[in-house]
């Protein structure tokens, strides 16, 4: 059953969603930091072939981060109305 009323005002729900999105963003960023570290280690060991897939995956993760940021922006704007 969906609860409504003063216990869960729209602002509160938006804030919870924003917190969740920020947590997900932090997880994506940690994966990206690990990816860069691994790619750098491979690069320094002379394994240049890892650079292309690492860059592609990093780009996808960045796109995910950007998408989450837009989501946070939208939720924020809606929550303030």
């Amino acid at each position: 059953m969906r609860r409504q009323g003063p216990l869960y005002p729209p602002q509160r729900r938006a804030l919870t969603a924003i917190d969740g999105a920020i947590a997900l963003l932090a997880v994506l960023l940690i994966v990206q930091i690990w990816l860069l570290t691994a790619a750098l280690e491979g690069f320094l060991a002379g394994h240049y072939r890892v650079a292309l897939p690492a860059a592609v995956i990093s780009g996808v993760l960045f796109a995910g981060c950007w998408g989450l940021y837009r989501l946070i922006h939208g939720l924020d704007r809606r929550g303030r109305r």
Binding site: L36, A51, A54, S58, L61
Partner: peptide, 9 residues
């Protein structure tokens, strides 16, 4: 981070 990976590439 993405820029760093592009630099490595």
């Amino acid at each position: 981070m993405f820029a760093g990976n592009l630099w490595l590439l």
